[in-house]
Amino acid sequence: MSGAAKPVEEGLTEQERIEIDAWLTRFPDSAEGKRSAVIPALHIVQHNSGGWLPRARMDAVAEYLELAPTRVYEVATFYGMFDVEPVGRHKVNICTNISCMLRGSNEIVEYAEKKLGIRLGETTSDGRITLKREEECLAACAGAPMMLVDEVYYTELTPEKIDQILDELE
C-alpha cells in the first residue's frame, strides 16, 4: 500500500506536483476545476505518506489548489478511502454492504476482529493492520463476501481464507 520510501510528512514533492498538474489539465481551468482535483491529489499524497493524510500534507494540497484547508478536510473525511489518522501498514476493508451482508460479512468481520484482537476502526498494536470502519459496496457483489486489502480484492471469503490472507501480511 504505502510507498516503499520514507513517508513524506509535509509539503508536496516535485513528483507529486507533476502528478497533480496532470490531473488539473483534465478539469476546467477555474476555481471549481481546481476543487475537482482534490480527490486525485489526496490519493497521490496519501500514497506517499504511509497510507494516511497528515494535516500538513492536506494543507499543502489546499495551498497548491488555492482552497481553504477546511474544504480539503471535508473531502478527506467524506470518503472512506482516505484516512486522516495514522493507519497500520495494511488497510483491510471488509465490505458490509447488502450483498456481502447477505452472504455472511458480519461473521467475517467478527472473525477478523477476534483474530486480530481489534475492533473495526482500530489498528493492531504492532502497527501491522488497520481494520477499516464501515466499508460500502466495492462493486464485487458477485464474489460476496469480499474485502479489499490495500489495493487487492479478495472474494468469496471464508474464515480459512481470512487466516491465510491476513497471516501473509508483513
Partner: peptide, 25 residues
Amino acid sequence: LDEIAGTSELGAMHRGEHTEIGTLV
C-alpha cells in the same frame, strides 16, 4: 464563515449519519 467572513474555518466533516460540523484540526 466561507461566504461572508471569508475565513472558511468550519466545515462539514465526515459523512451521512457521522457528519460533524467542526474544524477537524
